[in-house]
Amino acid sequence: MQKKILKFKLNGELMELLVSPSDTLVDVVRDQLGLTGTKKGCGKGECGACTVIMNGQSVNSCIVPAMQAMDAEVETIEGIGTSDKMHPLQETFIDYGAIQCGFCTPGMIMSAKALLDGNLSPSRLQIKETIAGNICRCTGYVKIEQAVLAAADKLKATKDK
């Protein structure tokens, strides 16, 4: 199959690379670009481990053909904070004990971020609905929901300042 040039912005940085039409976004991000924070739990759009944000929307990157990211802005877990300036979700996930094995964590945080980017006062139910496509087998979700709520509060507090 003929490889094609894909150009897109990944975590704010312009990327240009050759991909096969059958490549998925997750494979390009993980295997070609080496950003392994985004995980692959099923490869079929059924677990949410591969969630990234594309043009403001959370997507399962394992079922997004890479070429669909052409000219898009893609955000992954690596792009939302640094260890000395974490995203509030990263902080609250740590503080509330929302991380066990950590395999669902990047996808979980990206799903939650897509929600909070547009809504700083989500209800518990909205949070549940948002992460319903992200399977976590370790935590029972309770601490994850608490962490998302707490991150929303943090973000609101900074915005109100």
């Binding site: 993980r30 295997d31 080496g34 950003l35 392994t36 924070g37 985004t38 995980k39 692959k40 992954t76 877990i77 690596e78 904070g81 640094t82 260890s83 974490m86 990263q90 902080e91 996930f93 740590i94 503080d95 004990g97 991380i99 950590g102 395999f103 964590t105 990047p106 945080i109």
Partner: peptide
């Protein structure tokens, strides 16, 4: 005490290495 877990930061940042990440 609920001390910050040693693995939490790496995992929150997407910097933790799993077998499936090895190349």
């Amino acid at each position: 005490k609920n001390i910050r877990k040693l693995d939490a930061l790496e995992k929150a940042m997407g910097a933790a290495t799993f077998t499936t990440d090895i190349k």
